[in-house]
Design a protein around this nucleic acid. Structure first.
Length: 117
DNA sequence: AAACTGACTAATA
DNA sequence: CTATTAGCCAGTT
């Protein structure tokens, strides 16, 4: 039952489940989407995002914690603003502290549907 | 159908 | 730290 969805759609779905104040790397999203190491495709998917998408693309950054966006000139500026608005902070180099803001899948739902211990 | 494109990652030097 | 090399693949033209 997971065939009709194209890779892009899966990526959007994964990104859509990133909690606020959290960021994820392309490689991480790729892995969560079930496409292994195709981190590039994740980025390309966002690059092809249509207008009016409901995907928090701004929560997606590269492995260095930097904003990789190369598309819209104001894109990377907007992304930073959006993240800061969610509580994400940037260091002097304009990078996010992945050690602190990296989204950890499975950690978003502690004891939900699965009994603790 | 073939060529072109591109929001990446990791390893090595 | 920067530069370079290599791997990766779906969508668009």
């Amino acid at each position: 039952m997971e065939a009709p969805t194209s890779v892009y759609a899966r990526i959007f779905t994964v990104i859509a489940m990133i909690p606020e104040g959290r960021v994820a790397t392309y490689g991480q999203i790729a892995a969560l989407a079930g496409i292994g190491r195709r981190a590039r495709q994740v980025g390309y998917a966002l690059a092809s995002l249509p207008d009016g998408h409901e995907v928090p693309w701004h929560r997606v950054i590269n492995a260095k914690g930097e904003i990789s966006i190369r598309a819209r000139t104001d894109g990377h500026e907007t992304q930073r603003t959006l993240l800061e608005d969610e509580g994400v902070t940037f260091d002097v180099a304009g990078r996010v502290e992945l050690s602190r803001f990296r989204w950890q899948p499975g950690f978003e739902v502690p004891a939900a549907g699965e009994a603790a211990s």
